[in-house]
Design a protein around this nucleic acid. Structure first.
Lengths: 214, 214
DNA sequence: TAGATTGTTAATCGATTAACAATC
DNA sequence: TAGATTGTTAATCGATTAACAATC
Protein backbone atom coordinates (compact mmCIF):
# COMPACT_ATOMS: atom_id res chain seq x y z
CA UNK A 1 0.00 0.00 0.00
CA UNK A 2 1.01 3.65 0.21
CA UNK A 3 -0.63 7.03 -0.27
CA UNK A 4 -3.16 9.11 1.60
CA UNK A 5 -4.81 6.00 3.02
CA UNK A 6 -8.52 6.90 2.90
CA UNK A 7 -10.25 4.97 0.14
CA UNK A 8 -13.93 5.68 -0.37
CA UNK A 9 -16.45 2.86 -0.35
CA UNK A 10 -17.34 3.59 -3.99
CA UNK A 11 -13.79 2.76 -4.95
CA UNK A 12 -13.55 -0.28 -2.66
CA UNK A 13 -16.66 -1.81 -4.22
CA UNK A 14 -15.01 -1.61 -7.62
CA UNK A 15 -11.81 -3.32 -6.51
CA UNK A 16 -13.09 -6.91 -6.64
CA UNK A 17 -14.17 -6.33 -10.21
CA UNK A 18 -10.73 -5.03 -11.17
CA UNK A 19 -9.32 -8.04 -9.40
CA UNK A 20 -11.40 -10.41 -11.55
CA UNK A 21 -10.54 -8.70 -14.79
CA UNK A 22 -6.86 -8.62 -13.94
CA UNK A 23 -6.97 -12.30 -13.05
CA UNK A 24 -8.41 -13.12 -16.47
CA UNK A 25 -5.82 -10.97 -18.20
CA UNK A 26 -3.07 -12.68 -16.25
CA UNK A 27 -4.50 -16.10 -17.17
CA UNK A 28 -4.47 -15.07 -20.81
CA UNK A 29 -0.82 -14.14 -20.62
CA UNK A 30 -1.31 -10.38 -20.83
CA UNK A 31 1.49 -8.73 -18.88
CA UNK A 32 0.82 -5.04 -19.47
CA UNK A 33 -2.33 -2.96 -19.86
CA UNK A 34 -3.18 0.70 -20.24
CA UNK A 35 -6.03 2.39 -18.40
CA UNK A 36 -7.59 3.03 -21.78
CA UNK A 37 -7.70 -0.59 -22.85
CA UNK A 38 -8.88 -1.78 -19.44
CA UNK A 39 -11.59 0.87 -19.49
CA UNK A 40 -12.92 -0.46 -22.78
CA UNK A 41 -12.99 -4.04 -21.54
CA UNK A 42 -14.70 -3.08 -18.28
CA UNK A 43 -17.05 -0.42 -19.54
CA UNK A 44 -15.62 2.34 -17.34
CA UNK A 45 -13.79 5.56 -18.19
CA UNK A 46 -10.01 5.46 -18.29
CA UNK A 47 -10.09 8.46 -16.01
CA UNK A 48 -11.94 6.57 -13.33
CA UNK A 49 -9.53 3.67 -13.49
CA UNK A 50 -6.50 5.93 -13.11
CA UNK A 51 -8.23 7.80 -10.31
CA UNK A 52 -9.11 4.54 -8.55
CA UNK A 53 -5.74 2.88 -8.89
CA UNK A 54 -4.05 6.00 -7.70
CA UNK A 55 -5.74 5.87 -4.33
CA UNK A 56 -3.19 3.36 -3.23
CA UNK A 57 -0.03 4.77 -4.75
CA UNK A 58 0.55 5.11 -8.45
CA UNK A 59 2.61 2.30 -9.75
CA UNK A 60 1.67 2.48 -13.34
CA UNK A 61 4.40 3.62 -15.66
CA UNK A 62 3.92 6.80 -17.57
CA UNK A 63 3.94 6.19 -21.28
CA UNK A 64 3.64 2.47 -20.67
CA UNK A 65 0.67 1.41 -18.57
CA UNK A 66 0.29 -1.02 -15.68
CA UNK A 67 1.91 -4.38 -15.02
CA UNK A 68 -1.00 -6.83 -14.83
CA UNK A 69 0.45 -9.23 -12.29
CA UNK A 70 1.83 -6.54 -10.02
CA UNK A 71 -1.50 -4.73 -10.04
CA UNK A 72 -3.41 -7.95 -9.40
CA UNK A 73 -1.23 -8.77 -6.41
CA UNK A 74 -1.50 -5.28 -5.02
CA UNK A 75 -5.30 -5.17 -5.23
CA UNK A 76 -5.39 -8.61 -3.60
CA UNK A 77 -3.31 -7.28 -0.73
CA UNK A 78 -5.52 -4.23 -0.35
CA UNK A 79 -8.61 -6.42 -0.22
CA UNK A 80 -6.93 -8.54 2.44
CA UNK A 81 -6.56 -11.67 0.33
CA UNK A 82 -3.13 -12.27 1.84
CA UNK A 83 -4.63 -13.71 5.00
CA UNK A 84 -7.56 -15.92 5.99
CA UNK A 85 -10.15 -14.94 8.58
CA UNK A 86 -11.47 -17.85 10.62
CA UNK A 87 -15.15 -18.00 9.94
CA UNK A 88 -18.24 -19.77 11.22
CA UNK A 89 -21.33 -20.39 9.14
CA UNK A 90 -24.67 -20.25 10.92
CA UNK A 91 -27.58 -21.99 9.29
CA UNK A 92 -27.29 -25.18 7.23
CA UNK A 93 -30.60 -24.82 5.38
CA UNK A 94 -30.81 -24.38 1.63
CA UNK A 95 -28.91 -21.15 1.55
CA UNK A 96 -26.27 -22.10 4.11
CA UNK A 97 -25.45 -25.34 2.32
CA UNK A 98 -25.33 -23.62 -1.06
CA UNK A 99 -23.00 -20.93 0.24
CA UNK A 100 -20.78 -23.50 1.94
CA UNK A 101 -20.47 -25.57 -1.23
CA UNK A 102 -20.43 -22.81 -3.77
CA UNK A 103 -18.01 -20.18 -2.51
CA UNK A 104 -14.30 -20.26 -3.15
CA UNK A 105 -13.60 -19.13 0.40
CA UNK A 106 -9.85 -19.61 0.40
CA UNK A 107 -9.50 -17.15 -2.45
CA UNK A 108 -11.78 -14.65 -0.76
CA UNK A 109 -9.85 -14.34 2.49
CA UNK A 110 -12.01 -16.77 4.43
CA UNK A 111 -11.27 -20.04 6.25
CA UNK A 112 -14.40 -21.94 7.25
CA UNK A 113 -13.93 -23.46 10.71
CA UNK A 114 -17.45 -24.47 11.71
CA UNK A 115 -21.00 -24.92 10.44
CA UNK A 116 -23.90 -24.68 12.87
CA UNK A 117 -27.60 -25.22 12.89
CA UNK A 118 -30.32 -25.40 15.50
CA UNK A 119 -32.47 -28.08 13.94
CA UNK A 120 -31.98 -31.74 14.99
CA UNK A 121 -32.53 -32.98 11.42
CA UNK A 122 -29.51 -31.06 10.18
CA UNK A 123 -27.15 -31.50 13.13
CA UNK A 124 -24.75 -34.32 12.37
CA UNK A 125 -25.15 -34.12 8.60
CA UNK A 126 -22.11 -33.36 6.48
CA UNK A 127 -21.69 -30.16 4.44
CA UNK A 128 -18.53 -29.49 2.46
CA UNK A 129 -16.87 -32.30 4.36
CA UNK A 130 -17.66 -30.76 7.73
CA UNK A 131 -20.08 -31.99 10.36
CA UNK A 132 -22.94 -29.60 11.08
CA UNK A 133 -22.79 -28.84 14.78
CA UNK A 134 -25.48 -27.76 17.22
CA UNK A 135 -25.50 -24.03 17.89
CA UNK A 136 -25.02 -25.04 21.54
CA UNK A 137 -21.41 -25.57 20.66
CA UNK A 138 -20.90 -22.08 19.20
CA UNK A 139 -18.95 -20.76 22.18
CA UNK A 140 -16.70 -23.80 22.33
CA UNK A 141 -15.75 -23.67 18.64
CA UNK A 142 -15.45 -19.89 18.29
CA UNK A 143 -13.15 -19.73 21.26
CA UNK A 144 -11.02 -22.65 20.15
CA UNK A 145 -10.69 -21.33 16.59
CA UNK A 146 -10.65 -17.61 17.38
CA UNK A 147 -13.43 -16.97 14.88
CA UNK A 148 -13.42 -13.44 13.46
CA UNK A 149 -16.23 -13.66 10.95
CA UNK A 150 -19.72 -15.14 10.88
CA UNK A 151 -21.86 -15.91 7.87
CA UNK A 152 -25.54 -15.69 8.72
CA UNK A 153 -27.87 -17.90 6.70
CA UNK A 154 -30.54 -17.97 9.37
CA UNK A 155 -34.10 -16.68 9.70
CA UNK A 156 -34.56 -13.11 10.87
CA UNK A 157 -36.08 -14.21 14.18
CA UNK A 158 -33.06 -16.32 15.14
CA UNK A 159 -30.59 -13.56 14.37
CA UNK A 160 -30.66 -11.11 17.31
CA UNK A 161 -29.83 -13.72 19.91
CA UNK A 162 -27.11 -15.37 17.83
CA UNK A 163 -25.52 -12.07 16.80
CA UNK A 164 -25.39 -11.11 20.45
CA UNK A 165 -23.57 -14.32 21.34
CA UNK A 166 -21.18 -13.92 18.40
CA UNK A 167 -20.32 -10.36 19.38
CA UNK A 168 -19.56 -11.53 22.92
CA UNK A 169 -17.25 -14.15 21.41
CA UNK A 170 -15.28 -11.43 19.64
CA UNK A 171 -16.68 -11.96 16.15
CA UNK A 172 -16.37 -8.63 14.34
CA UNK A 173 -17.30 -9.31 10.75
CA UNK A 174 -20.70 -10.43 9.52
CA UNK A 175 -21.70 -11.59 6.08
CA UNK A 176 -25.39 -11.27 6.52
CA UNK A 177 -27.99 -13.07 4.41
CA UNK A 178 -30.67 -12.67 7.07
CA UNK A 179 -32.99 -9.69 7.09
CA UNK A 180 -31.98 -8.72 10.58
CA UNK A 181 -30.26 -5.33 10.81
CA UNK A 182 -27.06 -5.93 12.74
CA UNK A 183 -26.18 -2.96 14.95
CA UNK A 184 -22.82 -1.52 13.94
CA UNK A 185 -22.56 1.85 15.67
CA UNK A 186 -22.53 0.56 19.23
CA UNK A 187 -20.77 -2.73 18.55
CA UNK A 188 -18.04 -1.75 16.11
CA UNK A 189 -19.09 -4.70 13.96
CA UNK A 190 -18.34 -4.69 10.27
CA UNK A 191 -21.35 -5.86 8.30
CA UNK A 192 -21.82 -6.74 4.66
CA UNK A 193 -25.49 -7.34 3.93
CA UNK A 194 -26.67 -9.51 1.06
CA UNK A 195 -30.33 -8.81 0.47
CA UNK A 196 -31.21 -11.08 -2.39
CA UNK A 197 -34.86 -10.12 -2.26
CA UNK A 198 -33.95 -6.45 -2.60
CA UNK A 199 -31.80 -7.23 -5.59
CA UNK A 200 -34.65 -9.10 -7.26
CA UNK A 201 -37.07 -6.24 -6.63
CA UNK A 202 -34.60 -3.83 -8.19
CA UNK A 203 -34.56 -6.01 -11.29
CA UNK A 204 -38.33 -5.98 -11.32
CA UNK A 205 -38.33 -2.18 -11.18
CA UNK A 206 -35.90 -1.90 -14.08
CA UNK A 207 -37.98 -4.31 -16.16
CA UNK A 208 -41.10 -2.33 -15.52
CA UNK A 209 -39.43 0.94 -16.34
CA UNK A 210 -37.98 -0.60 -19.51
CA UNK A 211 -41.48 -1.73 -20.51
CA UNK A 212 -42.93 1.74 -20.00
CA UNK A 213 -40.18 3.88 -21.44
CA UNK A 214 -39.16 2.15 -24.66
CA UNK B 1 -47.24 6.83 -9.78
CA UNK B 2 -47.06 10.54 -10.53
CA UNK B 3 -44.42 13.27 -10.63
CA UNK B 4 -41.42 13.99 -12.78
CA UNK B 5 -40.91 10.31 -13.51
CA UNK B 6 -37.12 9.95 -13.48
CA UNK B 7 -35.99 8.17 -10.33
CA UNK B 8 -32.26 7.76 -9.86
CA UNK B 9 -30.79 4.33 -9.21
CA UNK B 10 -29.57 5.44 -5.78
CA UNK B 11 -33.18 6.01 -4.79
CA UNK B 12 -34.45 2.81 -6.42
CA UNK B 13 -31.94 0.72 -4.49
CA UNK B 14 -33.32 2.12 -1.25
CA UNK B 15 -36.94 1.34 -2.10
CA UNK B 16 -36.89 -2.38 -1.20
CA UNK B 17 -35.55 -1.47 2.22
CA UNK B 18 -38.34 1.06 2.78
CA UNK B 19 -40.71 -1.64 1.62
CA UNK B 20 -39.42 -4.07 4.24
CA UNK B 21 -39.58 -1.55 7.07
CA UNK B 22 -43.06 -0.46 6.10
CA UNK B 23 -44.18 -4.07 5.97
CA UNK B 24 -42.94 -4.62 9.53
CA UNK B 25 -44.65 -1.44 10.73
CA UNK B 26 -47.87 -2.53 9.07
CA UNK B 27 -47.58 -5.97 10.70
CA UNK B 28 -47.15 -4.28 14.05
CA UNK B 29 -50.32 -2.30 13.58
CA UNK B 30 -48.63 1.07 13.04
CA UNK B 31 -50.81 3.11 10.71
CA UNK B 32 -48.98 6.41 10.57
CA UNK B 33 -45.30 7.40 10.62
CA UNK B 34 -43.31 10.60 10.27
CA UNK B 35 -40.13 10.88 8.24
CA UNK B 36 -38.33 11.64 11.46
CA UNK B 37 -39.36 8.46 13.23
CA UNK B 38 -38.75 6.30 10.17
CA UNK B 39 -35.32 7.89 9.77
CA UNK B 40 -34.38 6.89 13.30
CA UNK B 41 -35.50 3.31 12.81
CA UNK B 42 -33.70 2.99 9.49
CA UNK B 43 -30.57 4.95 10.24
CA UNK B 44 -31.12 7.54 7.52
CA UNK B 45 -31.76 11.27 7.62
CA UNK B 46 -35.38 12.41 7.62
CA UNK B 47 -34.44 14.72 4.79
CA UNK B 48 -33.38 11.84 2.60
CA UNK B 49 -36.59 9.96 3.28
CA UNK B 50 -38.75 12.94 2.35
CA UNK B 51 -36.61 13.56 -0.71
CA UNK B 52 -36.89 9.90 -1.77
CA UNK B 53 -40.60 9.52 -1.19
CA UNK B 54 -41.25 12.73 -3.04
CA UNK B 55 -39.81 11.38 -6.26
CA UNK B 56 -43.09 9.63 -6.89
CA UNK B 57 -45.56 12.25 -5.79
CA UNK B 58 -45.87 13.53 -2.25
CA UNK B 59 -48.68 11.85 -0.47
CA UNK B 60 -47.58 12.41 3.02
CA UNK B 61 -49.73 14.82 5.00
CA UNK B 62 -48.13 17.98 6.25
CA UNK B 63 -48.26 18.16 10.02
CA UNK B 64 -49.17 14.50 10.15
CA UNK B 65 -46.77 12.15 8.39
CA UNK B 66 -47.30 9.21 6.05
CA UNK B 67 -49.96 6.49 6.04
CA UNK B 68 -48.00 3.25 6.44
CA UNK B 69 -50.22 0.99 4.39
CA UNK B 70 -50.74 3.46 1.57
CA UNK B 71 -47.01 4.08 1.33
CA UNK B 72 -46.27 0.36 1.41
CA UNK B 73 -48.70 -0.30 -1.42
CA UNK B 74 -47.38 2.56 -3.48
CA UNK B 75 -43.74 1.48 -3.17
CA UNK B 76 -44.82 -2.05 -4.06
CA UNK B 77 -46.45 -0.73 -7.21
CA UNK B 78 -43.40 1.29 -8.12
CA UNK B 79 -41.20 -1.76 -7.73
CA UNK B 80 -43.56 -3.70 -9.94
CA UNK B 81 -44.83 -6.06 -7.26
CA UNK B 82 -48.32 -5.82 -8.75
CA UNK B 83 -47.48 -8.26 -11.50
CA UNK B 84 -45.45 -11.44 -11.93
CA UNK B 85 -42.76 -11.91 -14.58
CA UNK B 86 -42.53 -15.43 -15.95
CA UNK B 87 -39.06 -16.63 -15.13
CA UNK B 88 -36.77 -19.51 -15.92
CA UNK B 89 -33.97 -20.67 -13.65
CA UNK B 90 -30.84 -21.98 -15.32
CA UNK B 91 -28.58 -24.21 -13.28
CA UNK B 92 -29.83 -26.62 -10.63
CA UNK B 93 -26.54 -26.99 -8.78
CA UNK B 94 -26.04 -25.88 -5.17
CA UNK B 95 -26.79 -22.26 -5.82
CA UNK B 96 -29.68 -22.81 -8.21
CA UNK B 97 -31.45 -25.18 -5.84
CA UNK B 98 -30.89 -22.88 -2.89
CA UNK B 99 -32.27 -19.90 -4.78
CA UNK B 100 -35.25 -21.91 -6.00
CA UNK B 101 -36.10 -23.08 -2.50
CA UNK B 102 -35.16 -20.00 -0.55
CA UNK B 103 -36.65 -17.05 -2.39
CA UNK B 104 -40.15 -15.78 -1.88
CA UNK B 105 -40.57 -15.24 -5.62
CA UNK B 106 -44.27 -14.49 -5.63
CA UNK B 107 -43.71 -11.51 -3.35
CA UNK B 108 -40.79 -10.28 -5.45
CA UNK B 109 -42.65 -10.01 -8.74
CA UNK B 110 -41.45 -13.36 -10.10
CA UNK B 111 -43.28 -16.51 -11.24
CA UNK B 112 -40.96 -19.48 -11.72
CA UNK B 113 -42.02 -21.43 -14.83
CA UNK B 114 -39.06 -23.69 -15.48
CA UNK B 115 -35.81 -25.00 -14.02
CA UNK B 116 -33.07 -26.22 -16.36
CA UNK B 117 -29.74 -27.92 -16.15
CA UNK B 118 -27.33 -29.49 -18.57
CA UNK B 119 -26.08 -32.35 -16.43
CA UNK B 120 -27.76 -35.78 -16.72
CA UNK B 121 -27.53 -36.37 -12.95
CA UNK B 122 -29.74 -33.37 -12.25
CA UNK B 123 -32.21 -33.62 -15.13
CA UNK B 124 -35.36 -35.28 -13.89
CA UNK B 125 -34.78 -34.46 -10.23
CA UNK B 126 -37.35 -32.34 -8.41
CA UNK B 127 -36.63 -28.86 -7.07
CA UNK B 128 -39.34 -26.81 -5.38
CA UNK B 129 -41.88 -29.25 -6.72
CA UNK B 130 -40.73 -28.75 -10.29
CA UNK B 131 -38.96 -31.21 -12.53
CA UNK B 132 -35.50 -30.10 -13.64
CA UNK B 133 -35.51 -30.07 -17.44
CA UNK B 134 -32.72 -30.45 -19.94
CA UNK B 135 -31.50 -27.15 -21.36
CA UNK B 136 -32.40 -28.67 -24.73
CA UNK B 137 -35.98 -27.79 -23.88
CA UNK B 138 -35.28 -24.13 -23.18
CA UNK B 139 -36.79 -22.87 -26.44
CA UNK B 140 -39.90 -24.98 -26.03
CA UNK B 141 -40.64 -23.82 -22.48
CA UNK B 142 -39.69 -20.16 -22.91
CA UNK B 143 -41.92 -19.87 -25.93
CA UNK B 144 -44.83 -21.65 -24.31
CA UNK B 145 -44.58 -19.62 -21.11
CA UNK B 146 -43.47 -16.32 -22.63
CA UNK B 147 -40.54 -16.11 -20.23
CA UNK B 148 -39.36 -12.56 -19.55
CA UNK B 149 -36.68 -13.15 -16.94
CA UNK B 150 -33.87 -15.65 -16.47
CA UNK B 151 -31.99 -16.44 -13.30
CA UNK B 152 -28.46 -17.59 -14.05
CA UNK B 153 -26.90 -19.96 -11.55
CA UNK B 154 -24.49 -21.44 -14.06
CA UNK B 155 -20.71 -21.46 -14.52
CA UNK B 156 -19.16 -18.56 -16.37
CA UNK B 157 -18.21 -20.74 -19.33
CA UNK B 158 -21.77 -21.89 -19.96
CA UNK B 159 -23.19 -18.39 -19.85
CA UNK B 160 -22.43 -16.75 -23.22
CA UNK B 161 -24.14 -19.43 -25.27
CA UNK B 162 -27.18 -19.64 -22.98
CA UNK B 163 -27.59 -15.88 -22.71
CA UNK B 164 -27.52 -15.67 -26.45
CA UNK B 165 -30.32 -18.24 -26.74
CA UNK B 166 -32.36 -16.51 -24.04
CA UNK B 167 -32.05 -13.13 -25.75
CA UNK B 168 -33.27 -14.69 -29.01
CA UNK B 169 -36.25 -16.05 -27.07
CA UNK B 170 -37.17 -12.55 -25.94
CA UNK B 171 -35.90 -12.78 -22.37
CA UNK B 172 -35.06 -9.24 -21.29
CA UNK B 173 -34.28 -9.46 -17.59
CA UNK B 174 -31.37 -11.32 -16.05
CA UNK B 175 -30.68 -12.02 -12.42
CA UNK B 176 -27.11 -13.02 -12.81
CA UNK B 177 -25.15 -15.09 -10.28
CA UNK B 178 -22.58 -16.12 -12.87
CA UNK B 179 -19.43 -14.10 -13.43
CA UNK B 180 -20.18 -13.60 -17.06
CA UNK B 181 -20.72 -9.96 -18.02
CA UNK B 182 -24.00 -9.88 -19.91
CA UNK B 183 -23.94 -7.29 -22.71
CA UNK B 184 -26.64 -4.68 -22.11
CA UNK B 185 -25.88 -1.82 -24.50
CA UNK B 186 -26.43 -3.73 -27.71
CA UNK B 187 -29.12 -6.08 -26.45
CA UNK B 188 -31.32 -3.81 -24.36
CA UNK B 189 -31.20 -6.42 -21.62
CA UNK B 190 -31.78 -5.42 -18.02
CA UNK B 191 -29.23 -7.06 -15.76
CA UNK B 192 -28.95 -7.30 -12.01
CA UNK B 193 -25.66 -8.90 -11.05
CA UNK B 194 -25.14 -10.70 -7.77
CA UNK B 195 -21.43 -11.09 -7.21
CA UNK B 196 -21.22 -12.91 -3.91
CA UNK B 197 -17.47 -13.23 -4.11
CA UNK B 198 -17.12 -9.46 -4.55
CA UNK B 199 -19.32 -8.90 -1.54
CA UNK B 200 -17.17 -11.20 0.58
CA UNK B 201 -13.98 -9.46 -0.52
CA UNK B 202 -15.48 -6.13 0.41
CA UNK B 203 -16.13 -7.51 3.88
CA UNK B 204 -12.55 -8.68 4.05
CA UNK B 205 -11.33 -5.20 3.13
CA UNK B 206 -13.41 -3.58 5.83
CA UNK B 207 -12.19 -6.04 8.43
CA UNK B 208 -8.62 -5.35 7.52
CA UNK B 209 -9.11 -1.61 7.61
CA UNK B 210 -10.86 -1.93 10.95
CA UNK B 211 -7.90 -3.89 12.29
CA UNK B 212 -5.41 -1.28 11.14
CA UNK B 213 -7.28 1.87 12.03
CA UNK B 214 -8.65 1.27 15.52
C1' DT C 1 13.96 12.24 -29.37
C1' DA C 2 8.91 11.58 -30.16
C1' DG C 3 4.92 9.12 -28.70
C1' DA C 4 2.31 7.25 -25.24
C1' DT C 5 0.28 7.13 -21.01
C1' DT C 6 0.33 8.05 -16.34
C1' DG C 7 -0.55 11.03 -12.06
C1' DT C 8 -2.97 14.85 -10.62
C1' DT C 9 -5.49 19.09 -10.68
C1' DA C 10 -9.67 21.43 -12.12
C1' DA C 11 -14.49 21.24 -13.80
C1' DT C 12 -18.71 18.94 -13.80
C1' DC C 13 -22.16 16.32 -12.30
C1' DG C 14 -25.14 14.04 -9.03
C1' DA C 15 -26.57 12.86 -4.43
C1' DT C 16 -27.22 14.15 0.27
C1' DT C 17 -28.26 17.33 3.83
C1' DA C 18 -30.08 21.61 5.70
C1' DA C 19 -33.44 25.03 5.94
C1' DC C 20 -37.83 26.90 5.74
C1' DA C 21 -42.17 28.30 3.79
C1' DA C 22 -46.54 25.89 2.89
C1' DT C 23 -50.24 23.61 4.99
C1' DC C 24 -52.65 20.01 7.42
C1' DT D 1 -55.55 28.56 16.33
C1' DA D 2 -50.90 26.54 17.44
C1' DG D 3 -47.96 22.70 16.62
C1' DA D 4 -46.21 19.43 13.70
C1' DT D 5 -44.45 17.81 9.67
C1' DT D 6 -44.39 17.74 4.89
C1' DG D 7 -42.75 19.36 0.11
C1' DT D 8 -39.30 21.84 -1.97
C1' DT D 9 -35.57 24.96 -2.70
C1' DA D 10 -30.80 26.07 -1.66
C1' DA D 11 -26.25 24.69 0.17
C1' DT D 12 -22.99 21.20 0.78
C1' DC D 13 -20.62 17.36 -0.05
C1' DG D 14 -18.66 13.60 -2.70
C1' DA D 15 -17.84 11.12 -6.89
C1' DT D 16 -16.94 11.17 -11.74
C1' DT D 17 -15.06 13.06 -15.83
C1' DA D 18 -12.02 16.07 -18.45
C1' DA D 19 -7.73 18.11 -19.25
C1' DC D 20 -2.98 18.46 -19.28
C1' DA D 21 1.66 18.75 -17.47
C1' DA D 22 5.06 15.32 -15.94
C1' DT D 23 7.72 11.58 -17.39
C1' DC D 24 8.79 7.01 -18.94
Amino acid sequence: MAKGDYISMSVVRRLPRYYRFLYDLKENGVTRISSRELSQRMGLTASQIRQDLNCFGGFGQQGYGYMVEQLYDEIGRILGMDRLANTVLLGAGNMGRAIANHMDFEHRGIRLVGIFDGSPELIGTTVRGMEVLSTDRLEEVCNAQKAEVAILCIPKEAAPQLVDRLLKLGVRGFWNFSHYDIPTQETGAVVENVHLGDSLMTLSYQLKKDRIME
